[in-house]
Design a protein around this nucleic acid. Structure first.
Lengths: 229, 229
DNA sequence: ATATAACGTGTATTTTTTACACTAAGTAAT
DNA sequence: ATTACTTAGTGTAAAAAATACACGTTATAT
């Protein structure tokens, strides 16, 4: 039993894994680093926690500084703490994820010089990532796979008004497999958290699909949907 | 946007939430602290991570030092990082949980003077805990509730040979509700991870129940059992 | 007008979940 | 040995959920 007295000599960082869906592709938000180590590499948006903020607050601040995004609800999912995960010292990283709808609206503008730019990158076509970020991302993907099987949570990824086919696409992309259209619709509608709108899709070639909205009130009443005993 | 450059001035700690089942009660492993702050209080086994060990390794070491237990597989479940959670500085705590069978065999002997003693305490009868340990524990309980609904994992809590009634007790204690005996048995046996033994219970008043064993091979083939689409 | 491509729908079968109550077997006391 | 006691162990029917599967409809583009 080694008896080294440990001190206050760690750093704690946040890494954010943001999944985005643009209507057809599943993407991840990455930044291009502007600082050593791993200058010019792609990385998850992340930085060190300050002393006077909680890790939750820190996650919000860091995401904003590096990407310009604010008020994104992120959920913590794991702390990465291998000894050599950071080349410049002992840094424990707490990882958060969120799922987002993507539209033209949101400009990605790093407010800090720490990132050269922020960009949504197709999950199917990722570059090599800095640090252990590929590992962090993989664990995040596992997390959301499990998550969308529990509660129909992929709505966070969808635009305000969406078609059932889009919902199915999101599920298929995350789960990595094809689903049966009729059964999928039956199931999704059975949760009773979708409101069918009068409106139809616009600006598409071929037949336009009915649009739906997500009913938050009813949604919040759901919870659990777990194995029964 | 405050621009304070953060340094390596955090500490990282581990807290272990060990659930134990002694055949009839659900218990938690606590220590009585021998150091300030919270000297003489009950607390979860926990301490600071050393610089030359990973957080996973640290969890193993700390558990051993404070309770004498080793080679317990623990799973990380959350990092607690509020600013004021530790009165003596900025300490982020990474929490781990495990589920254990309890028998006379294991002596609880703190190897470090940090703990006066370690003791299994009934979950239904907990003392006030140091720091934010009640909160950490609550979150751990939620975790294992979800967990045993997914995979029949409560076997970690049971002795090598056990009766179906014992399995049901564990589930009832963790879930906090009564279950139907026939349906419970049907379900548990349907997982096909139990081997019925020739042997019967011994040393009980009244009719002895058949003993079962957990079949690890078959168990490892299970995984997921999630909502289907 | 026609071709195109995605939309939208129903049923039968199987599997899973739920609700529900009595007999069997072993122990302890008399 | 009889009896009283306590826990073990078992089945079925009804309801709900999951699965497998194919074609007519409709808006758009040419």
């Amino acid at each position: 039993m080694t008896e080294i007295t440990p001190g206050f000599d760690f750093a704690v960082s946040i890494d954010c894994v943001l999944f985005g869906f643009d209507g057809s592709e599943l993407k991840i938000l990455l930044i291009e680093r502007n600082e050593e180590p791993f200058k010019d590499w792609w990385a998850l948006p992340g930085n060190l926690v300050n002393k006077e903020e909680s890790v939750d607050q820190s996650a919000q601040r860091i995401l904003k500084e590096l990407t310009g995004l604010s008020d994104i609800y992120m959920e913590q999912y794991y702390a990465f703490g291998d000894v050599d995960r950071h080349p410049q010292g002992r840094v424990i990283s707490v990882a958060y994820y969120a799922m987002l709808r993507l539209g033209g609206e949101k400009p990605l503008k790093p407010l800090s010089s720490y990132a050269k730019k922020a960009q949504w990158i197709n999950v199917a076509d990722l570059p090599k990532l800095a640090f252990d970020h590929q590992h962090i991302l993989n664990k995040g993907l596992e997390k959301i796979k499990r998550r969308i099987k529990h509660l129909p949570l992929a709505f966070e990824l969808l635009p305000e008004k969406f078609t059932l086919t889009q919902v199915q696409s999101v599920y298929e992309l995350i789960l990595g497999k094809k689903l049966d259209k009729r059964n999928f619709r039956k199931k999704i509608l059975s949760f009773k958290v979708l409101k069918e709108l009068e409106e139809k899709q616009r600006g598409v070639s071929f037949r336009a699909a009915t649009l739906y909205k997500f009913d938050k009130r009813k949604y919040n009443k759901l919870f659990g949907k777990e194995i029964s005993f």
